[in-house]
Design a protein around this nucleic acid. Structure first.
Lengths: 116, 116
DNA sequence: TTCTACAGATAGAATGTCTACGGTAGATGA
DNA sequence: TCATCTACCGTAGACATTCTATCTGTAGAA
């Protein structure tokens, strides 16, 4: 019973938004993919659930564009893990993407909830 | 000269956002595709520029899902134009999509600009 | 020894947007 | 009258990104 219509099923990512979120996740310091995934879920109040099939290809793209570097290390749980680090270009890209997102939100708001 | 680096080149639509914008465009009453396109450009402060190759397929999807109906009429410029009208389902969908968008923005904000 | 959490990754489908076309018909001015 | 502009309609195919589904493996707890 009670197949409840859950209003809190995870949100899908709008195309392009995952990248800025990943960059933001690494602003505080290097992290591995699993850690990024957890960070995003927690920070978003569990609205975002990151699929591996989205996350790993996105990390590859960010590496190829020179916005991240990666190196294998051992996590605090003594497991091997690939740690990603923001490059200087990555920080710039984070700023660019953040303000682009901001512009987009403002434009959407003007259409959806015009004031005045 | 002066190939200026325009900070106001049009924003691309994040996947899925065009549909809610179209529905919103029709909230005030029926309109044709060209009119919807103009409405969105003006209302967004010219941040959005709607490509026909995005608009017409989107309208087809909305029709197929029963959120719009369409009929041919003659515009005030005495040209034939296909007027789209929101259905009751379309209004509901507009509400659903609007609040989903709102949730998404809030989740993004929690990650990108956490306060507290 | 089995289970859960931690950690990595890929293939292929599905989706929706963009680029680049192509077309008709009224209005307008030379 | 002729050309051009603007208002309108659309489609085909490339492209990028996400999702679903699947696979591999280890550490530590039960």
């Amino acid at each position: 019973m009670s197949t409840v219509d859950d209003p809190r099923e995870p949100l899908e990512f709008l195309q392009g938004t995952l990248e800025v979120l990943i960059l933001r996740s690494l602003q505080a310091g290097p992290n591995h993919a699993y850690g990024i995934s957890q960070f995003l879920e927690q920070q978003s109040g569990h609205e975002f659930v990151v699929d591996n099939g989205s996350l790993y290809p996105a990390l590859q793209r960010l590496l190829q564009r020179g916005w991240l570097t990666a190196e294998w290390k051992v996590s605090p749980n003594s497991r091997r893990a690939r740690y990603y680090t923001l490059t200087a270009d990555g920080r710039e890209q984070l700023m660019r993407e953040s303000s682009k997102w901001q512009r987009f939100v403002e434009a959407m708001t003007r259409v959806l909830n015009p004031e005045g």
